[in-house]
């Protein structure tokens, strides 16, 4: 739907400045756009392309490779159920079926009220806590069918503050404005670091082995 708001554009520029080459900011900016709109809109990709200096086709080429970017609006809560091996062994597939019944939708779709989207996903690194799922990438461990129903109720009633709407990942961002950056430039502008040079010189004058960097 939309390009970045002025505040987000400001933040986007700050993020671009964290990378030696602008294109590296493509994925972070796609996340920012998804945080803004809940999904990754075409116009947002065009704006990202301008900010990182590539074509929109290149942004889409990158974004479409990754599962988390949604090109159409989805539910406010994305529930992802792991069915990979460790979870499967302890009922992950049954949990998914239960979720489909509870929400009345099949995996990959969104409830009519636009509240929930359900997905069957690969291992989410909660294997010792099987079966596991996530809501907007917040973990739920060892989820029984009752736990799941409770979770859905809580979300419906707005009782899960720790879960922001889909699109928002981490709510704490790294603060790395221009005032903090020590030394981020394009690779061409970089040279041997000063501490390496100093240790090399010291090693030479004391006759021991050269510095680790050389």
């Amino acid at each position: 739907m939309s390009r970045f708001t002025p505040e987000n554009e400001q933040l986007a520029r700050e993020i671009v400045a964290r990378y030696p080459r602008p294109k590296s900011a493509t994925i972070p900016l796609c996340h920012l756009a998804q945080e803004q709109d809940g999904y990754l809109a075409d116009d947002a990709m065009t704006h990202i392309a301008e900010l990182v200096g590539v074509t929109p086709a290149e942004v889409l080429g990158t974004a479409s490779f990754y599962e988390m970017f949604k090109r159409k609006p989805i539910g406010k809560y994305l529930i992802t159920v792991c069915t990979n091996i460790s979870c499967q062994l302890l009922g992950g597939e049954e949990l998914l079926e239960h979720a489909e019944r509870t929400l009345g939708i099949s995996s990959g779709s969104t409830t009519d009220d636009g509240l929930f989207t359900l997905e069957d996903v690969e291992c989410i690194a909660a294997c010792t806590e099987a079966p596991a799922c996530q809501v907007n990438y917040r973990y739920q461990h060892r989820v029984s069918h009752d736990d799941f129903d409770q979770l859905v109720d809580d979300l419906r009633e707005g009782r899960r503050d720790e879960v922001p709407a889909h699109g928002t990942l981490a709510r704490v961002r790294q603060q790395l404005g221009a005032d903090r950056i020590a030394n981020i430039t394009p690779p061409e502008a970089q040279d041997q670091p000063v501490w390496i040079t100093r240790h090399e010189r010291e090693a030479q004058s004391s006759g021991t082995a050269a510095g680790g960097g050389s």
Binding site: D42, M45, T46, V54, T55, P56, A57, E58, V59, L60, G61, S64, F65, Y66
Partner: peptide, 22 residues
Amino acid sequence: GDPLIHFMDRGANTQVNTFPDE
């Protein structure tokens, strides 16, 4: 130097395409 066609999506669904309307 005209990267207007690109691989899209992943794995067995990989395809070549343009950006919509571009």
